[in-house]
């Protein structure tokens, strides 16, 4: 089983973001470096959920914003290692829509459940496979690192 390492600050930021946008879904990107058995995430970037139509159960990051996040990550010596989003009043398990929308094979997809406005369970899934045709989510373990790193906002 792969391990997703999150700094305490990132872990807290994901939960706070989920509570902040409740009852809508929040989403963002996770920046870090590859470790032996998964990603080591050192920063998170809040993204705007462009799915205004059904933001309660869908999320999507605008391509231009993603390009910008990727560029900013590179500027900090990091790369996009994953994405997170919230499930307002839903369990922290991936949906078919989540899998269909996930395209970054090798990246971690973190889901935080937000129950009645409070962040609850948080789970991570590695997008495994070689191509769109055989991609699949594999549950991974989250490990929290106590560290100083903070989130920064994507403008």
């Amino acid at each position: 089983m792969s391990v997703l390492q999150l700094t305490r600050a990132v872990y807290d930021a994901i939960r706070a973001h989920g509570e902040e946008t409740y009852p809508r879904e929040c989403c963002g990107a996770l920046l870090g470096t590859p470790a032996a058995d998964g990603w080591r995430i050192e920063a998170s970037v809040k993204a705007r959920n462009t799915r205004t139509d059904s933001a309660r159960n869908r999320y999507s990051i605008a391509p231009a914003e993603l390009v910008k996040i990727e560029r900013e990550a590179r500027g900090r010596g990091l790369s996009i290692g994953g994405f997170y989003h919230s499930h307002p009043d839903h369990p922290a398990e991936w949906s078919q829509a989540d899998l269909a929308e996930a395209h970054w094979i090798g990246c971690s997809y973190v889901i935080v459940a937000v129950a009645l406005g409070k962040a609850a369970a948080i789970h991570s899934f590695l997008l495994a496979g070689n191509a769109e045709e055989d991609k699949r989510f594999v549950a991974e373990r989250i490990e929290i690192l106590e560290s100083q790193e903070t989130q920064f906002e994507s403008k």
Partner: peptide, 18 residues
Amino acid sequence: RLLLVDALNMRFREVRLR
């Protein structure tokens, strides 16, 4: 699809477009 080429780290990534 928008293909992103990072020559410095030689990484190719793609962003889905709608």
